[in-house]
Amino acid sequence: MKRDESGLTLVEVLATLAIFSMVAVIIWSVFFQGFNFSEKAISKNFMLQESNILVTNLKRVHQKLIKYEIKSENCSIKVTDLTTSSQVQEFNHPSICFKILEINNVTGSGPKTIEPNKNANDISLKISVSDKNNSANSITINTFLYRVKGVDYQ
């Protein structure tokens, strides 16, 4: 045998493959953790934007109507104008579920009759907003529907 032969032994090749596979598994898991976190953050941001639109529309309804009924069913929030009894506004989204948890600190999704011109102008709402595809991804919004004093909304 010649003493000046060079090359890799089987043990060296196996050790290199083992180290390489451990590094690859660590990089792979960090990548997917970041990807999952990014997907959840994008979904929560989208739900926040849609809930802000919902709250803005509900405030507009509260300031405009004299007497109305609010309730949530089938992942949507329905507002019925009780002065005309026929005008129903439904707030829903194809990929988001809206549900009223509390109205004026009373648990339940309604129906609740609201008369903003009476003694209590402000209405507190607790709304759950969740992703229809992943119900574990949800947020809760606490908000007030209000009327500015001294303004005639009729």
Rank of each mutant, 00 (worst) to 15 (best):
K78W: 07
T113Y: 02
Q89I: 15
F31N: 05
L10K: 02
Q89N: 14
I53W: 06
T107E: 13
E90T: 13
N105I: 09
V55H: 01
V23R: 02
T113C: 03
S21M: 11
N117E: 12
M47K: 01
I70C: 03
S72T: 11
P111S: 04
M47T: 06
K99D: 15
Q33S: 15
M22G: 09
P116C: 13
F35V: 00
T83C: 01
E39C: 00
S76G: 12
L65E: 04
A15H: 01
Q63G: 01
L54Q: 07
S72L: 13
I100N: 10
I53H: 07
E73M: 08
K99L: 10
K40L: 02
E90C: 04
S76D: 11
F35Y: 01
A18C: 04
I42P: 00
I103R: 14
I96E: 01
N52E: 07
N117F: 12
G34R: 00
G108I: 10
H93C: 13
P111D: 10
V88E: 14
K71N: 12
L17N: 01
H93M: 08
Q33T: 14
T16D: 02
K99H: 13
S29K: 09
P94S: 15
L82F: 03
T83S: 11
S72C: 05
F37I: 02
P116D: 10
N45L: 00
N74P: 00
A41R: 07
N104Y: 14
V106E: 11
E69G: 13
I70F: 09
E115K: 03
M22V: 07
I53A: 11
C97R: 12
I53P: 01
V23C: 01
Q49D: 11
